[in-house]
Design a protein around this nucleic acid. Structure first.
Lengths: 272, 272
DNA sequence: GGTTGTGAACATATTCACAGCA
DNA sequence: TGCTGTGAATATGTTCACAACC
């Protein structure tokens, strides 16, 4: 999960745990699907399966919102949809701006999941004058010069940054100065923001690196298992990364010396 | 944090905590930047600031890898880069395939951060025959029919799914059947996969919903603060969501009844 | 003096297991 | 009987604070 929050450390207001908040959208999606199929009620077991969590966790999560279920029966789908939407603030209309209209920004602009959840794309903004006026997702791209005006006129409090890494900090400062207090950052940089501003980070490269870590483990475990099965059962208990010796068990990922050269880690997405 | 792991519950092999693994890429990025500026050593305090975490956490994280620092001095940048890369498995070459070449898939294909970290895009795959052969990021898109062949020939173990939600489960099954054991899923669906397969999920809409939750809190807190300052200081301790009464303090996010209509939550990204 | 590495204290999150209610 | 709601137990994660060392 490409995730990371800045600020908002100890002061959790009405005491809904952060981990629970992060799962509410998941439940909401599963419930919306049930609602479309006109399913009237659902048990914690069924809903948990649909959301990909276990049922005890789901019940605990819901218990923080209140007692919205019926013992022996389950939860009323429509009612829960409403309660979770309200808790998440999705009964309001949230105008957002997307800054940086490269491939990624365009993908975000076209993403249907935004509009359906109370988020309205108020403007697409890019620094490239050649982009200005071009329609993306049925909406003209506007130039960065207009940023402050757009934010103030639309009362935007949520900004999405999809610019290259080099531009992100400056963009965030302009967004914040104009009134934005929540930022979703796709640029691979740590943004430094004042107290009171929330930043969430989505980092594609980090997610892959975490997968690679587990892949490597799997390869090692396979090798260990093969070794334990094939040879004497010695040393199974050490838990240390098994030597890369033995035959490559499933042979994936060829070892290669890491080229230590420059890198920069900037997404080649687009100028913004 | 767009994050979510499936499988791999209790069995954490050599005992590097999951939370630590998730931060290693962050440290690595900060270290790479230092390395490019030819900075020889760095203290936990400095590195922590660059990575956006606190220094105690960073030291604890590093302590799981081993004792790579020097008391009174700090950490050798190059050495740490190597150690973390190795731990994450980035000294290997990981071929990946991207399935679903819409805006998002194209953005991923163009993303420079992949190549620079040992990830190599082995193929771009799309279900639309009209896409076949078209170059994206300097590489021809291949048709889904080729999926199994591509994966086997290249020894691909990591797949990226950037298709619409409806196609994702089926794509994941084909990937897994062909030998993929780690999936990065951008489609807004819960994938069900067999034991032993890792799935990480990046969900744009979920991240925004989490931000909206905190935004709503902020508005409430401002209202409460205003009320406490203006009127009598009654009821500050309740912590309950303050009534939406009083004047809108910073006035953002107009209240609007949620239209309960169908939704589907499918990204309009592209057919794949 | 300065900084790491880490046990101990604390905080958060998950899971268990069952009482309580429809 | 069946399922929720929740205390208690456990597991994981973070922070403190300081001894060990350069």
């Amino acid at each position: 999960m490409a995730t990371g929050r800045t600020h908002r450390p100890a002061t959790r207001s009405r005491g809904i745990p952060e981990a629970t908040v992060a799962r509410l959208p998941l439940y909401l999606r599963a419930l919306t699907a049930l609602s479309e199929r006109s399913v009237p009620t659902v048990s914690s077991e069924e809903l948990a399966a649909a959301a990909g969590v276990n049922s005890a966790k789901l019940r605990k999560d819901f218990s923080y919102l209140g007692s919205y279920g019926t013992r022996g029966v389950g939860y009323d789908v429509e009612y829960l949809v409403y309660q979770i939407s309200r808790e998440l603030g999705l009964t309001q209309d949230w105008p957002v701006v997307i800054v940086g209209i490269g491939n990624l920004g365009a993908a975000l602009a076209n993403y249907g999941g935004f509009a359906s959840r109370g988020f309205r794309v108020a403007a697409l903004i890019d620094a490239d004058p050649a982009m200005a006026g071009k329609p993306v997702a049925g909406m003209p791209v506007q130039h960065t010069d207009e940023l402050e005006k757009i934010i103030e006129e639309n009362g935007v409090s949520i900004g999405v940054i999809a610019t290259p890494a080099g531009a992100a900090q400056q963009v965030s400062e302009r967004l914040i100065a104009a009134g934005v207090t929540s930022i979703l950052n796709f640029a691979p940089t740590v943004l430094s923001v004042p107290e009171g501003v929330d930043v969430r980070k989505v980092d594609l490269s980090i997610e892959l690196q975490i997968l690679a870590f587990h892949e490597q483990r799997k390869a090692g475990e396979e090798a260990a298992a093969a070794a334990a099965a094939g040879g004497s059962a010695a040393g199974t208990g050490t838990g240390a990364a098994p030597a890369a010796a033995v035959v490559p068990p499933a042979g994936r990922a060829t070892a290669v010396a890491r080229k230590g050269g420059p890198d920069g880690d900037v997404p080649a997405v687009m100028p913004a």
